[in-house]
Amino acid sequence: MSAMPRYVPSSTSLHGVRWLRSSRSTGMNNCVETARPGSGPWSGMVAVRDSKNPAGPALLFAPGVWEGFITGLS
């Protein structure tokens, strides 16, 4: 079995997912957006992309890893 990629092109591989931005984000557009693909090979993963470059790559994380990161920030 091959390993899952660490990132995917968000404009093509994650077309149609709903991207969310933090409510704490300012109007400066300098934050990240997250999505949870509901189907396909990345179903169940958390995708994270730079809001300044929505056509750029999205990093993929297992939900527990992303939640651990967010918990570590607070």
Rank of each mutant, 00 (worst) to 15 (best):
Met1Cys: 06
Met1Arg: 14
Met1Asp: 11
Ala3Pro: 03
Ala3Gln: 11
Ala3Leu: 13
Pro5Val: 11
Pro5Cys: 07
Pro5Phe: 03
Arg6His: 03
Arg6Phe: 00
Arg6Met: 01
Tyr7Trp: 12
Tyr7Asn: 12
Val8Lys: 02
Val8Thr: 12
Pro9Gly: 06
Pro9Ala: 14
Pro9Met: 09
Pro9Ile: 08
Ser10Val: 06
Ser10Thr: 08
Ser10Glu: 02
Ser11Phe: 09
Ser11His: 15
Ser11Thr: 08
Thr12Ser: 14
Thr12Glu: 11
Thr12Asp: 02
Ser13Phe: 01
Leu14Tyr: 03
Leu14Phe: 05
Gly16Ile: 12
Gly16Asp: 05
Val17Met: 03
Val17Arg: 06
Arg18Ala: 12
Trp19Ala: 09
Trp19Lys: 09
Leu20Phe: 13
Ser23Met: 03
Ser23Ile: 10
Ser23Cys: 02
Arg24Cys: 05
Arg24His: 14
Ser25Glu: 00
Ser25Met: 03
Ser25Lys: 03
Thr26Ala: 08
Thr26Ile: 01
Thr26Val: 00
Gly27Glu: 09
Gly27Ala: 13
Gly27Arg: 09
Gly27Asn: 12
Gly27Gln: 08
Met28Glu: 15
Met28Ile: 04
Asn29Glu: 13
Asn29His: 13
Asn29Gly: 10
Asn29Met: 04
Asn30Arg: 14
Asn30Asp: 15
Cys31Ala: 13
Val32Leu: 11
Glu33Ser: 06
Thr34His: 00
Thr34Glu: 01
Thr34Cys: 08
Thr34Trp: 02
Thr34Asp: 00
Ala35Thr: 06
Ala35Trp: 06
Ala35Gln: 08
Ala35Asn: 08
Arg36Ser: 05
Arg36Ala: 05
Arg36Thr: 11
Arg36Ile: 06
Arg36Cys: 05
Pro37Trp: 05
Pro37Met: 08
Pro37Glu: 04
Gly38Cys: 04
Gly38Lys: 04
Ser39Asp: 13
Gly40Pro: 07
Gly40Ile: 08
Gly40Met: 10
Trp42Glu: 06
Ser43Trp: 05
Ser43Glu: 15
Gly44Met: 07
Met45Leu: 13
Val46Thr: 09
Val48Asn: 04
Arg49Gly: 07
Arg49Ile: 05
Arg49Asp: 09
Asp50Asn: 14
Asp50Val: 07
Ser51Trp: 10
Ser51Leu: 07
Ser51Glu: 15
Ser51Ala: 14
Lys52Glu: 13
Asn53Met: 10
Pro54Cys: 11
Pro54Leu: 13
Ala55Gly: 15
Ala55Val: 10
Ala55Leu: 11
Ala55Arg: 13
Ala55Gln: 13
Gly56Glu: 12
Pro57Asn: 13
Pro57Gly: 07
Ala58Thr: 07
Leu59Ser: 09
Leu59Cys: 08
Phe61Cys: 07
Ala62Pro: 07
Pro63Gln: 08
Pro63Asn: 10
Pro63Phe: 04
Gly64Asn: 12
Gly64Met: 04
Val65Ala: 10
Trp66Glu: 05
Glu67Gln: 14
Glu67Arg: 14
Glu67Asp: 15
Glu67Thr: 14
Gly68Asn: 14
Gly68Glu: 12
Phe69Leu: 13
Phe69Asp: 02
Phe69Ile: 15
Phe69Thr: 01
Ile70Phe: 03
Ile70Asp: 01
Ile70Tyr: 00
Gly72Cys: 07
Gly72Lys: 04
Gly72Ala: 14
Gly72Leu: 07
Gly72Met: 03
Gly72Asn: 07
Leu73Asn: 00
